[in-house]
Amino acid sequence: MSSETASPALRISINGDPHSVPGGMTVAGLLSELGMAERRIAVARNGEVVPKSSFDKAGIDAGDRIEILEAVGGG
């Protein structure tokens, strides 16, 4: 088990699937972990848009619903 100073893992959902991420992670950190840092994507956290300019400031909390979207073919 982690010591008292280490952040426990947080359970969140990403695109509807359950994930565990380390505590203290930012949206930018999550995207980097997922290999999405260079991809053209947009992020919503609990139904609210996370602006690109805030990716490295926006934290992730237990229970967050993260949606990571990209442009796909559509009419």
């Binding site: 699937d17 994507i41 979207l69 990209e70 442009a71 796909v72 073919g73 559509g74």
Partner: peptide, 19 residues
């Protein structure tokens, strides 16, 4: 050209994107 927004494939082996 119009596009839609959908969940990205989290599979690291995913190919290029439409854009």
């Amino acid at each position: 050209v119009t596009v839609a927004l959908r969940r990205v494939n989290l599979d690291p082996a995913k190919g290029p994107s439409l854009l």
